[in-house]
């Protein structure tokens, strides 16, 4: 457990000073690109990081006030579905996409992305741009355990995924978990548990949740609301982007990495093929990979740029054990995995 130190966010300003602000020229964007983007004057962003999107847009608009940014924000697969529908009707609106590994994998396979070799890539680890892919990862999103510590004092809290297979009686009626039919991260967790613990192991985990009368929420944010109100003081998992925003409000919660490993995905950025405003799209990508990394860190999330520090009070990303996920296999097995989950939980 990483304790209460996570709650202290008063020193974000200090982080800002340490990180990035020190040398703005190092992050200078190509002036020719800026001029071309300002000439286009508009950027349409499709983004499925609902919490981060307005913060990034605000910062971008401060830096480039001549460019009007408009956004469509929804769940990751919804943004994908909408873009595909618009392309199918020969009315592409979006210029740039922000989404997760699994969505980008599919978009890449379908030839929807334009390769953009951002000069900022030099400051990132080698796997930031996955092989044969046209998207660029810029932050890691981790799923780990959380509880409302005020309400769980003196009670056991989850240490590993397998704890849910044999849960203690004190957890009865206190857990919320999430629907892989409507939440892309819930599906990622399902697929990873299935891949790592095998069908039987994963079945026991979901059966344990069922035995504890765990409440199914349509999405993790609904679970966060119930965590804070005390209605369901144990979340099956919380995501780093939700944890950061919540703990910043002073909520008494922890970010507890499972012993066998957190489950993770990455958020990436990609310029779309046939984007109506390609230069603003490239400028956005450069921004996200430079100045936007500060925004990521300021929200208590893991930015992937080499010089980005870990969020305040959190261990370096490299020290966190993360369970591997075969996203391609998960996508191929989507229907049988959902059927497996339905059978394990009794939910149809």
């Amino acid at each position: 457990m990483m304790g209460k130190s996570y709650r202290s966010f008063a020193s974000w300003a200090l982080i800002g000073l340490c990180f990035g602000l020190a040398d703005r020229t190092a992050w200078a964007i190509d002036p020719a690109l800026v001029a071309a983007a300002e000439q286009e004057g508009q950027l349409v962003l499709y983004n499925c990081d609902i919490g981060e999107s307005p913060v990034q847009v605000k910062r971008f608009s401060e830096l480039y006030p001549k460019i009007k940014v408009t956004t469509y924000v929804a769940s990751c697969w919804q943004t994908y579905n909408r873009h595909v529908a618009e392309r199918g009707a020969a009315r592409p609106i979006a210029d740039v996409f922000v989404s997760t590994d699994d969505v980008f994998m599919k978009m890449n396979d379908e030839g929807l992305l334009e390769g953009y070799a951002s000069p900022e890539l030099a400051h990132f680890p080698a796997n930031t741009r996955p092989a044969n892919s046209d998207y660029i990862r810029y932050k890691a999103l981790l799923a780990a355990f959380t509880v409302n510590t005020d309400l769980m004092k003196g009670q056991p809290i989850p240490q590993d995924w397998t704890d849910f297979a044999n849960p203690p009686a004190q957890w009865q009626g206190k857990i919320s978990f999430y629907d892989p039919r409507t939440s892309s991260l819930a599906f990622t967790v399902l697929a990873t548990l299935h891949q790592q613990f095998g069908a039987e192991g994963a079945r026991k985990i979901y059966a344990g949740l069922k035995a504890m009368d765990a409440e199914l929420s349509s999405s993790t944010p609904a679970g966060v609301t119930k965590l804070l109100s005390g209605e369901k003081p144990i979340m099956f998992y919380i995501l780093t982007n939700q944890y950061g925003a919540t703990v910043a409000k002073g909520a008494p919660i922890v970010f507890n990495v499972p012993k066998s490993g957190a489950i993770g995905t990455n958020f990436g950025v990609a310029v779309l093929k046939g984007a109506p405003h390609p230069n603003t799209a490239r400028l956005w990508a450069d921004f996200i990979l430079s100045e936007g990394q500060k925004v990521v860190t300021s929200r208590a999330e893991y930015a992937l740029r080499k010089d980005a520090p870990a969020p305040q009070g959190m261990p370096p990303l490299s020290t966190i054990k993360i369970l591997p996920t075969d996203f391609r296999k998960a996508l191929e097995d989507q229907k049988p995995l959902i059927a497996f989950w339905q059978e394990a939980t009794g939910i149809r």
């Binding site: 609902i50 919490g51 924000v73 929804a74 609904a222 966060v224 925003a245």
Partner: peptide, 26 residues
Amino acid sequence: VVLLYSANTRTFSVLSFETWSTGIFS
């Protein structure tokens, strides 16, 4: 609206929904 809004037509209900999606009820 959540299916049809775009560009300059984002409405207040969409903003509320986005806020709900962060889990911060306040």
